[in-house]
Design a protein around this nucleic acid. Structure first.
Length: 956
DNA sequence: GCGACAGG
DNA sequence: CCTGTCGC
């Protein structure tokens, strides 16, 4: 890459001056004016030697800032041990600066940074521009910066020859695998001169062996339990100090300094100036050597033309593959996603890649010109990954801080926006509308629904195909977690910058808008970059496992629909809830008093522990059938207490008390508090990647468990209302969708017939199982049959059914037996599902959504039984989820195409709720029914129940 | 982290 | 069987 005429030398002035000073300290050079010139002479000698020997084309000298640096900010004692600078040195410095200047060499200094940070930053930039960089310094801290093209140039010293330290030498010296581990070693052993504490009892040798073994300070601390004795103690007790020392030893590569190629070009000295200086300092020998007529000691380099040099990679041709290696390329890609994760933890190298060990080009773009330039390239892409940085994890209230884009692994751009000035932010964001709303560009993101919801606030409705890496992994490994840091660790063996590094943690955590863009951009760019790399990793795996269609046609389109639903929200009648709260509070207090009176003492009814003691120890209820939980407490669950209700009236009071406090705390009081103060609506957040079966889940608040079963609970449903008097709520729910799916899968003639004839499925099941005509099925029989039907879907066991029906196990087993007699194909289907699972260790839904059941062949009966029930339940529950997802996508698309004002606002597993403009109802209602019924036709008809009303309860 | 309970 | 939230 580099050519002989691109050799940059960067000198650490202070380190060289100190060294020169001490080199001459044994026999000081005092000039006629009484000045100790040793430091200046030594430094100049070194410089001249360098110019003669290496004939650099580019050279610069870096100085420490006299002011405090960020290192002092983070550690007040930093360099406190260093004795005051010897007077001889402080006198020498201005002379050195003048000499350097006279040589025509730029001197560089930056407020708040030390020379090594400047040198580090410049060497990075220069290397990318194709230079070989030589850092002239005796300081071993610099070893952490060495790469294939960046070297430490160790000046000659006391008979030691010049030494050029390259990467192999660094690795060899400490027997490490990665140059960056130098930081870990320095952090551990500390540095007495700079007063970096390190960890007590650890010197260079121990540091070396520990890092060899654990890879990093962090990992050492995490695995301190593997150590012994005093060492273990020290590592544990001084963990924080160790981490801080590492931080102090880290040379920062983010100094805001440009690599000014032309300025660093060496053009030879100003001989006149130099002669005057040498004269003043009385450097006669040196004067002859450098300026004497005999030999021109300081050569002028051959001139060459600059090639690159703009920070922005504007001249890169499009469509070219990355300049950088894919991080994933270095490790052996596991055969399958399934194995990938398993192998990931066991065989992953101890040292992970990070931003500091991986080549990357992350850019901070702040000017309109830069943004236009980026835009120009983005528009030419077929796919782009992006990520938003915001002020909150709640997408509805979050304010944008910036957006990062990446379209080539290893290269990303960050555009900050003013978070306080929403109009100004919108203007910048609008510049990218064309790209974000382009139907031709695939947008990749990690949990991209979040970004979509945030961007809606800024007038952007992201269009075009979407690719969510979180959802990709959700389909590949539904039982696992899917956060980006974890995915990057597992599949790319890369540790991203943690948000905590940036913002701190706990209640004092900052928000993004508190940080300057300069501190955010690498983090933001890395996210977009990693996301793109994950996409490249997951895509072939999805293909191989036949998940592409589900991914492209269901999950990704759905995310946009969910984003719209979240942003839409739902209206609630807060006044009604506030009134309820007061009513409930009174009832609860009355009950409390009665309970205390009956118990003869006051206690916390909400504490299962205290409650158990009162009921069972003090009052002696329950007799022989007292149960305990696995933690040894008395079990006081609903089921248990219900059985005791007849023994004492206190029990029913307790049950009622529980119900009311639950309703009050979880719904009546919680929901109004979550209403958004901007639009006065309640916004839930749908999680598309937590339920291993493929269902959605809802949080903040959970609107999928609003009460319905009890009278008091239904009051809460009444508080969910249309947005205004021109709207009604429409509820549409699939009737018996899971049983229909069972009928479809099993192809059971009896069951299918019941659905085809539109019979009451529970009554008809009761008639079969209890061998009576349908018209003689009583309510108890129907209730039992209903429980059986649910049991079937859950992968029934006689034990479970007995529990649910509160009947003896024997009786439950007989009922199951009878059921299978009547529905033989269901039994066959269940057996075959389990067999298939045993065979391939996964089951799948109608659309190929997988669930891995790696315990299906366990020898442990309980574990295996659990997996077997999942083998039956997962395909059914998952297929139902698939179907309603398709319906949602189609309905959303239709509403949009028809430009209707009605909105889909909630999903509750088999139910969709709409806020319908009254005049649209005649069009909307039948269409929704049709789209739900026909989302994915099965071999049995699908029924949809519809209802409208002035609140959710009425509509349901 | 658990027990209890709201929903499907 | 699948969830999320509350209070302890």
């Amino acid at each position: 890459m580099s050519t002989p005429d691109k050799r940059l030398f960067l000198l650490d002035a202070m380190a060289l001056i100190y060294r020169a000073h001490f080199a001459f300290s044994k026999n000081p050079r005092i000039n006629s004016k009484g000045m100790n010139t040793g430091a200046a002479l030594g430094f100049t000698n070194t410089l001249v030697d360098l110019l003669n020997r290496e004939k650099p084309t580019h050279i610069g000298v870096c100085y420490d800032a006299p002011s405090k640096t960020f290192r002092h900010d983070s550690f007040v004692e930093y360099k406190a041990n260093r004795q005051a600078m010897p007077e001889d040195i402080s006198i020498a410095i201005p002379y050195v600066k003048k000499i350097v200047e006279a040589f025509g060499i730029p001197g560089m200094m930056m407020d708040g940074f030390e020379a090594d940070d400047i040198i580090g930053t410049l060497s990075c930039k220069a290397e990318k521009a194709g230079y070989d960089v030589f850092m002239m310094t005796p300081d071993k801290d610099y070893y952490q910066l060495v790469t294939d093209h960046v070297f430490v140039y160790k000046p000659a010293f006391l008979g030691n020859a010049i030494e050029i330290i390259d990467k192999p030498k660094v690795l060899e010296r400490w027997e490490i695998e990665n140059v960056k581990q130098v930081i870990d070693i320095l952090g551990l052993q500390g540095d007495a001169v700079d007063n970096i504490p390190g960890i007590p009892g650890i010197g260079e040798k121990t540091a070396k062996t520990l890092i060899q073994r654990f890879g990093s300070v962090e990992n050492l601390i995490a695995n301190a339990h593997e150590l012994k004795g005093k060492q273990k103690e020290n590592v544990v007790n001084f963990a924080e100090q160790g981490l801080m020392s590492k931080e102090l030893a880290t040379i920062h590569l983010d100094v805001p300094i440009d690599f000014d190629e032309e300025g660093l070009r060496y053009d030879g000295p100003d001989t006149e100036k130099l002669a005057a200086l040498f004269d003043e300092l009385e450097f006669r020998q040196l004067a002859t050597r450098v300026l004497g007529t005999a030999s021109p000691a300081v050569p002028k380099p051959v001139s060459n033309k600059p090639t690159v040099g703009k920070g922005f990679k504007s001249d890169k041709p499009m469509g070219q593959t990355s300049l950088f290696e894919m991080p994933a390329g270095e490790t052996v890609a596991p055969e399958e996603g399934a194995d990938a994760t398993a192998a990931g933890d066991d065989y992953a190298p101890r040292t992970r890649k990070t931003i500091d060990t991986t080549l990357h080009e992350y850019h901070l773009l702040t000017t309109p010109e830069q943004r236009q330039q980026l835009l120009k390239y983005l528009k030419q892409q077929k796919e782009v990954s992006f990520d938003t940085e915001t002020t909150s994890i709640d997408a509805i209230t979050a304010r944008l801080v910036g957006i990062s884009f990446c379209y080539m692994p290893g290269e990303a751009y960050y555009i900050p926006v003013p978070p306080k000035d929403e109009d100004a932010a919108r203007e910048i964001v609008q510049e990218f509308k064309e790209v974000l709303e382009s139907p031709a560009i695939t947008k990749t993101g990690q949990n991209i629904k979040y970004d979509l919801v945030v961007l809606q606030r800024y007038g952007i409705d992201v269009q075009g195909p979407l690719y969510d890496t979180m959802l990709a992994h959700y389909l590949l490994e539904p039982d696992m977690r899917h956060n980006m840091d974890l995915l990057a660790e597992t599949y790319l063996h890369y540790t991203p910058i943690s948000i905590e590094t940036l913002l701190g943690k706990g209640k004092n955590q900052l928000t993004m808008d508190k940080l300057p863009a300069l501190q955010i951009y690498e983090y933001a760019c890395e996210d977009a970059d990693i996301t793109l790399q994950l996409k490249n990793y997951f895509d072939p795996l999805l293909e191989k496992q036949g998940l592409k269609r589900l991914f492209n046609d269901v999950e990704n389109p759905l995310l946009r629909v969910l984003g719209h639903m979240e942003r839409e929200g739902v209206s609630i009648d807060a006044d009604a809830l506030a009134e309820s709260s007061i009513v409930l509070q009174t009832s609860i207090q009355e009950m409390e008093q009665k309970i205390f009176n009956l118990a003869g003492m006051e206690f916390n009814i909400g504490s299962p522990k205290q409650l158990g003691e009162v009921l069972f120890d003090r009052m002696g209820l329950g007799g022989s059938k007292i149960k305990k939980t696995k933690t040894g407490q008395y079990a006081t669950g609903e089921e248990i207490l219900s059985k005791l209700a007849f023994e004492h009236e206190i029990v029913q009071l307790i049950l009622d008390h529980r119900q009311l406090t639950k309703l009050k705390s979880t719904y009546v009081d919680a929901l109004p508090a979550l209403v958004c103060n901007e639009d006065n609506r309640l916004h839930t957040s749908y999680n598309q990647a937590v339920a291993a079966t493929g269902r959605l889940s809802s949080t903040n608040p959970n609107l999928q468990n609003i009460p319905i079963r009890t009278e008091k609970g239904r009051e809460i449903r009444k508080a969910f209302v249309p947005r205004d008097e021109n709207h009604v709520l429409l509820s549409a729910d699939y009737s018996q969708i899971e049983l229909r799916i069972m009928a479809h899968f099993s192809n059971d003639a009896t069951m299918k017939e019941a659905f085809q004839k539109g019979l009451d499925i529970h009554a008809s099941t009761a008639a079969k199982v209890f061998h009576v005509p349908v018209d003689q099925v009583d309510s108890d029989m129907r209730r039992k049959a209903k429980t059986i039907n649910f049991g079937i879907i859950y992968g029934i066991s006689a034990f479970g059914l007995a529990e649910r029906l509160a009947i003896p196990r024997r009786e439950a087993a007989e009922i199951i037996e009878a059921y299978f007699q009547e529905f033989p194909a269901v039994k066959e289907y269940m057996d075959s599902a389990i067999n298939q699972a045993r065979d391939q260790e996964f089951v799948e839904t109608l659309l190929g959504r997988r669930r891995y059941l790696r315990d299906i062949n366990s020898r442990n009966q309980n574990i295996r039984g659990y997996a077997e029930r999942n083998a039956i339940n997962a395909p059914i529950q998952g297929t139902a989820a698939d179907i309603i997802k398709i319906a949602m996508i189609n309905i959303d698309q239709w509403l949009r195409e028809e430009k209707l004002a009605s909105r889909m606002i909630l999903q509750v597993h088999d139910e969709l709720v709409f806020d319908v403009l009254k005049e649209e109802l005649p069009v909307v209602q039948p269409k929704i029914e049709e789209l739900m019924k026909n989302a994915f036709p099965l071999s049995v008809p699908m029924e949809v129940g519809l209802g409208t009303g002035e609140n959710w309860l009425q509509a349901h």
